[in-house]
Design a protein around this nucleic acid. Structure first.
Length: 309
DNA sequence: CCAGACGTTGTT
DNA sequence: GTCTGG
DNA sequence: CCAGACGTTGTT
DNA sequence: GTCTGG
């Protein structure tokens, strides 16, 4: 069975839109994701297509292609969606206060405060060099070698353990580190009856300093896209109540080293990428109002009790 | 050698 | 751009 | 992170 | 289910 057959098969499945199955069924998957390319190369897709076909019996509106071998058997590995990391945060401290708190010398952009900063949106970040500079980046790092900016929508976090090796982050880790000011972040705790958003914030008045990386990408129209990513690490005991990753939060005395682009000492830099103590944080559950990135109001961070949701 | 991926977290 | 896999 | 869209060919 | 956009 050739690859063209594979495409037509998946296409037919897509047209039916399948309820209650966990198999992928879109043409797009065939052509774009490594996972489906691999699957097709190993012929396992036949099994998936057969399972789906079986569910729908005679309801195909089109011939699914030439006959295939049902005797070929194997387990279906079902890919689930990517969930559960630092994917939403709050930045309500106004810029003039940030300038004070972080000793910023130069301000290159202006952004209103937000109770609901989502990936893809512009965020404020401090970069180093001789003096600290406040700049604006799109959240979702586009590596400088990318052919397409869409890769950025998936590069919202970088694992502290691996960022020194990964092609997407390696160069940025060496030369383009930044600090993202944030008053807190949200995590969705998975429970039996759904997901509950929780807000994690600083025990002091001062905002967090997330460790980040940034990158410059040449856009097709000759411009430059500036984008960034938030570094994650193993969580402390408090953060662990919601997830097994949390953003790296730098203390004031660590920021200079992180921002110094002359520093290339991987060991010294990686030593900074640890969870802050649980005692430095607070958390409480919040309303699912925060789920939609369109909602950007103080209500997003207001505490709620579970039965009030 | 060239082609193709390059990431995360959460499941299986 | 650089590395891995075929 | 969540919300919301998701493909093709050939014909109107 | 998976991808893109916010």
């Amino acid at each position: 069975m050739g690859s063209r057959d594979a495409v037509s098969l998946i296409l037919v499945v897509y047209r039916l839109t399948i309820p209650d199955t966990q198999a992928c069924c879109r043409t797009n998957c065939v052509s774009t994701t490594p996972y489906w390319k691999r699957l097709i190369q190993t012929s396992k897709f036949i099994i998936i297509a057969l399972r789906i076909r079986h569910l729908f019996k005679g309801e195909f509106n089109r011939e699914p292609g030439p006959p295939f071998n049902i005797a070929e058997s194997g387990r279906i590995f079902m890919q689930t969606s990517v969930r559960g990391m630092c994917g939403r945060f709050v930045r309500t401290t106004p810029i003039d206060q940030l300038i004070e708190l972080f000793a910023i010398h130069e301000v290159d952009c202006d952004l209103p405060p937000s109770y609901n900063v989502a990936p893809g949106q512009p965020v404020l970040a401090i970069t180093g060099g001789p003096e600290r500079r406040l700049r604006c980046f799109k959240w979702g790092l586009v590596p400088f070698w990318a052919k397409d900016a869409s890769i950025g929508s998936r590069m919202i976090n970088a694992r502290a353990e691996t960022l020194a090796e990964k092609p997407a982050f390696r160069q940025a880790f060496k030369k383009r580190r930044c600090v993202i000011p944030a008053d807190g972040y949200y995590e969705w705790r998975k429970e039996e009856d759904g997901k509950t958003p929780a807000y994690f914030y600083s025990a002091t008045e001062e905002p967090f300093a997330f460790a980040g990386l940034y990158e410059l990408w040449q856009t097709p129209d000759g411009g430059v896209l500036q984008s960034c990513v938030i570094v994650t690490t193993e969580p402390n005991e408090l953060a662990r109540t919601a997830h097994h990753r949390m953003p790296v939060i730098l203390r004031e005395h660590e920021i200079d080293l992180w921002l110094d682009d002359r520093v290339q000492d991987e060991t010294a830099l990686k030593a900074l990428l640890k969870a802050i103590p649980a005692e430095a944080m607070r958390c409480h559950d919040v309303s699912t109002r925060v789920n939609s990135p369109r909602n950007d109001t103080p209500e997003c961070i207001e505490p709620v009790r579970k039965h009030e949701l």
